[in-house]
């Protein structure tokens, strides 16, 4: 009898400890998660390396439709730019040279202009004699989907369709070459 009681008592104690631990840890977890969210609140929607690259469809200046998911198995060098952005302008010729080198190896460049006019974009392309496709994101919807803030931003999409790397700011030709290697299909 006495042992029975004792066993019951230790049982109850254990249950109590488990119950209290459960309640306390649940609440501590909730607080921790809240802090995590508040710390990362500003960039929580920004894409991260390793995320699936959001699919989109844009028409380039020649009228060809480019759908990101069509390039599965190949690398995509996604460059967001504007004619008013100096570093964007500077890196374009280097991009063009590397494009010619890597296109046959399965790396595509798509330069996405942020909502400028056809005239501005076309005369810019003519001026630098750019050969890669350029598309205008007229409603800024691709920019919104990728949460692009500063220009230039380059998003490197690997053959699996995942984001390999996000580059903000100007790239040297050496950088561009290295990035192309990273997303080159094996």
């Amino acid at each position: 009898m006495a042992e029975d009681k004792k066993a019951k008592k230790t049982n109850r104690k254990r249950n109590r400890a488990i119950m209290r631990l459960a309640i306390l840890s649940l609440l501590v977890l909730a607080i921790g998660y809240t802090i995590y969210n508040s710390v990362t609140a500003d960039d929580v929607e920004v894409l991260k390396v390793g995320d699936k690259a959001p699919d989109f469809a844009l028409e380039d200046m020649e009228g060809n439709r480019h759908k990101l998911s069509d390039y599965k198995g190949e690398g995509v060098f996604l460059n967001f730019w504007g004619t008013w952005c100096e570093p964007c302008v500077k890196e374009m010729p280097a991009m063009d040279r590397q494009y010619k080198e890597y296109e046959e190896q399965g790396v595509h460049i798509l330069a996405v202009n942020i909502a400028q006019s056809d005239f501005e974009v076309q005369s810019f392309a003519d001026r630098f004699d750019l050969s890669f496709p350029i598309a205008i994101d007229r409603s800024k919807s691709v920019m919104t989907a990728y949460n692009i803030r500063p220009l230039p931003t380059t998003v490197l999409v690997n053959p699996e369709g995942d984001i390999q790397r996000i580059v903000t700011g100007e790239m040297s030709e050496q950088d561009i070459k290295g990035f192309m290697e990273e997303i080159k299909p094996q």
């Binding site: 306390l24 609440l27 501590v28 909730a30 607080i31 809240t34 802090i35 508040s38 710390v39 609140a41």
Partner: peptide
Amino acid sequence: SSAWFIILVGMLAI
């Protein structure tokens, strides 16, 4: 958004 303020509110909840 301060961590310590959130912790304090969380402690109030506990």
